[in-house]
Design a protein around this nucleic acid. Structure first.
Lengths: 344, 344
DNA sequence: GTGAAAGCGCTAACAG
DNA sequence: CTGTTAGCGCTTTCAC
């Protein structure tokens, strides 16, 4: 079939070992044989079989990336960032999506381990902190991207959710709103606890105590969930004048609800999201959003992971895990009530 | 490290060969040893090393998926569909994006072949028909998803672009528009040739000959490209009253342009896209679009590919390539001028 | 029915 | 500097 190292060795009149040494620059090889091998390689169009290499090296140059749902633009951005640095550093991505199901998650992890990935980046984890820690202790290089597992002893890169939420709510406060609702995802996810906390905190600082009906923690985070939540809120006797959505996807659903009920944004309802996915710029009402920079998280996460992988190659030392937290910024468009709508 | 087949063999007091036979059901094994092995397996938590397996079987249970840009929601949908069936059938996806650069594309193909993928699904090809055919002849299982290479001898699944474009334009015609512009991607991509042809054809059938300035084939297909094209069209002395965008992403850019120039959609400009990405439902003006069903293409493409992979296992016969073409439908929302805006 | 041995393609000591 | 040998974990003849 494909040309193997043996073919090259034969063609160059040397042993496989020498070819390998030359290819990997792991030992000195005489100038002359170097040339002969190089010639043979290009003549035959040889490319090493990564699988065989992996078997012997226990290194696959492959990284597993697990996300909740590829259809969510936030994850799309994150994947984009991850793919970018993976490619740049010679790795390729094994992609899998969990649809938020914990069960699929462990299946995926197993599949990936069987394939000897060099590491796994989780952009979605429902696993418990301890399970993730166990994975790491078991020799799997792990990084968490945009998921906060407070007690997991692994690298993670995340955005300061509390601060981000406050940014959003304070902005709304400045617009004069006093009745600001919260719509977020499952509280089992630390991110959402934080965003909820940020919302509550900012309101408290303004001396506002929101009614219970204005706090919605949904168990899904897709557009439809946001849609339903929006309807619910708008149909309240005293509907909020503004909403902070803990996720752009949720915000899009809320827009849909407004549209359906003929409420204008930001006129009759101001809205701020979280994530600043590119699409927000062309959404029903250009969405003001906390920039959670999925792209950057994807990039950073993979850098961290690859660094760790390659470091471990040299010294299998237990290095301290790093926790990188990005500072959120507000990406102001129109849904909050700001005039300009400066794009992006 | 991890537990290997040798460990299991030892624990069960049999040889590796027997364990393998049992695991793969490839030979009869006595009931008794079966049980002993099964016990050992679950006791030790053994899972076969796919890499080793791959080396010996020349089968990786991995499929390469190459897309142009993960950020484009159309590809996101396609990936989603692909991932779904891959997972269901026990394969995992190696994802790579080309950013539309032909060079990256061959790099990627090489990387994937080195990793012994069982097949490659292209959702983006800039490779020439003959190169793709060569790949296939060289033993790589290939499928084209949503990309039409008329002369490539490989499986492909695509949507009827000519018909889709006509659907769009005819709808606009029915709304009374006579001045309908076209905005599409590079003509080097067969899809766009077809969509252009459909546009022209539908107009011709209505006895309309569009001015040259109303036909724009851009060399990129991102939102920004659409934005620029939109501005150009709107600033014309005699701007069109409607636009058919060959891609939703382009349509979103056009919306942005309208927004900027204070033109209402569909009031002052009607718009129909192509792809019907989910996001269109919550875009600036809910987008009427030809349903190109990226999700389904992703699914079908992977089914085709996996079928071929598994068929080839049995009979390495040269089976005829299949060309699956999906029928487009019109997903009517509001940007075309229809009242209702029936969602989805 | 079960095991011994060879091989998939590559790397890694260890000798020369 | 280069070749020999063994081995990564699994499958697969081919005997027993």
């Amino acid at each position: 079939m494909a040309v193997t190292i043996t073919d090259v060795a034969k063609a160059a009149g040397v042993s496989k070992a020498t070819v390998s040494k030359f290819l990997n620059g792991t030992h000195y090889v005489s100038q002359e044989t170097k040339e002969r091998i190089a010639a043979a390689v290009s003549e035959l169009g040889y490319a090493p079989n990564r699988v065989a290499q992996g078997l012997s090296l226990k290194r696959s140059h492959t990284i597993g990336l697990v996300v909740a749902n590829i259809g969510n633009p936030f994850y799309a951005e994150l994947i984009r960032g991850a793919e970018e640095v993976a490619a740049a550093r010679g790795y390729t991505l094994l992609l899998a999506s969990t649809d938020g199901e914990p069960r699929r998650e462990s299946t995926i992890v197993n599949a990936m381990r069987q394939r000897q990935v060099d590491g796994i980046a989780f952009a979605s984890v429902r696993l418990a902190d301890r399970e993730v820690t166990a994975l790491a202790k078991d020799g799997v290089n792990v990084v968490l991207a945009s998921r906060h597992l407070p007690d997991a002893e692994v690298d993670m890169v995340l955005v300061d959710s509390v601060k981000g939420a406050k940014l959003a709510v304070n902005h709304l406060l400045q617009h004069g709103h006093r009745s600001i609702a919260y719509v977020g995802g499952p509280l089992s996810i630390a991110q959402f606890q934080d965003r909820l906390k940020g919302w509550k905190g900012a309101l408290a600082e303004a001396g506002i105590e929101p009614p219970a009906m204005h706090e919605l923690s949904l168990d899904r985070m897709d557009v439809e969930a946001g849609h339903q939540a929006g309807l619910r809120l708008l149909r309240l006797e005293n509907p909020p004048t503004a909403i902070f959505a803990a996720t752009d996807n949720l915000a899009f659903g809320i827009m849909q609800a407004c549209d359906e009920m003929n409420r204008t944004i930001p006129g009759e309802l101001a809205l701020v999201g979280f994530d600043a996915v590119p699409f927000g710029a062309v959404s029903l009402s250009p969405l003001t959003s906390v920039d959670g920079s999925g792209l950057i998280m994807g990039q950073r996460a993979l850098q961290l992971l690859i660094d760790r992988i390659e470091r471990d190659q040299r010294t299998p030392a237990e290095s301290r895990q790093v926790r990188m937290v990005l500072q959120p910024t507000l990406c102001i468009r129109r849904s909050c009530g700001c005039r300009s709508g400066t794009e992006n």
